[in-house]
Amino acid sequence: MTLHIVSQSPFSGSALKDCLSAFADGDALLLIEDAVYAAKGQTITQLKGKSVYCLEPDAVARGISIDPAIEAIDETRWVSLCTEHNPIVSWFR
């Protein structure tokens, strides 16, 4: 099962949309950097029913309060997510 890592804001490009079009059952999604802007508000409706994680330090740095439907994680948990999934695909454009 794939770990998808998205780092681009949903408001500045199609990375999240492209990722979701390739998303399979059992995959996980991690929001980092500017993609944490997808962790609150209306954009989370498209993430419903999926395993979604958000890198908390990046959300804190941007003043984003992560929606309770999304699991806030630190870098250590990110590493363990990487050990639990293969391959790991980064979406940044």
């Binding site: 681009q8 990487c82 050990t83 293969n86 391959p87 790991i88 695909v89 980064s90 979406w91 454009r93």
Partner: peptide, 9 residues
Amino acid sequence: SDRIVTFGS
């Protein structure tokens, strides 16, 4: 390697 992680531009 067991895992490859890419960090974008």
